[in-house]
């Protein structure tokens, strides 16, 4: 009763690959733990013992999950209020979201945080099919400016205002 029995329609390839990620992190850890330097003064179990224990756990548990999945016992996907459990995974939307986070990362320094945040918000809203788009864009600009004002100006969190807002005093802490 610890796991749900799967419907035969779903192929567990992805799940096995994910369990193998745990195994490979463990294997990589076991291989590299031997090169952690031990200071000569060490009298206890030293800095390598705990890494060996944890990485072995990763390998054992990961292998156990692979074995379980092969025997047809797959994991039970998490539930959430806004989730349509019957829907197929929307990989396109996911890729768009990840893309916009990456874009956000590269925009923070050159364009400033408010611009990067507005791009992230409107991009994410567009990826999730917000309609109409112009409304999402307006909300994103307002939200980004409010956050910049509250956090950068009032709370003194140093968010880079970027070239556009550099000269506006209340956007800077």
């Amino acid at each position: 009763m610890s796991v749900q029995v799967s419907t035969p329609a779903r192929r567990p390839t992805g799940e096995i690959l994910f369990a193998l990620v745990f195994v490979s992190v463990g294997v990589a850890g076991l291989l590299t733990a031997g090169s952690i330097p031990i200071p000569p003064s060490e009298t206890g179990i030293g800095p390598r013992a705990f890494p060996y224990i944890v990485c072995s756990m990763l390998v054992i548990v990961g292998t156990g999950i692979v074995a379980q999945v092969f025997r047809g016992k797959v994991g039970q996907a998490e539930e959430s209020e806004d989730l349509d459990v019957t829907a197929k995974t929307d990989w396109v939307a996911l890729a768009k979201l990840v893309g916009f986070v990456v874009l956000h990362i590269f925009l923070i320094e050159p364009a400033g945080w408010p611009v990067a945040a507005a791009v992230l918000f409107s991009g994410a809203a567009w990826s999730l099919e917000a309609k109409p788009l112009w409304k999402a864009v307006i909300i994103s600009v307002v939200l980004a400016l409010v956050l910049q004002y509250v956090f950068g100006g009032l709370l003194g969190v140093s968010l880079p205002p970027g070239p556009l807002l550099e000269g506006v005093p209340f956007f800077n802490g």
């Binding site: 986070v101 945080w113 945040a117 992230l120 994410a124 999730l128 917000a130 980004a144 956050l147």
Partner: peptide, 18 residues
């Protein structure tokens, strides 16, 4: 929901950056 989850992304990014 599109706004809600877009907002969560922005807040998460803000938290991580700061």
């Amino acid at each position: 929901r599109p706004y809600l989850y877009a907002g969560i992304l922005v807040f998460a990014a803000l938290g991580a950056f700061s």
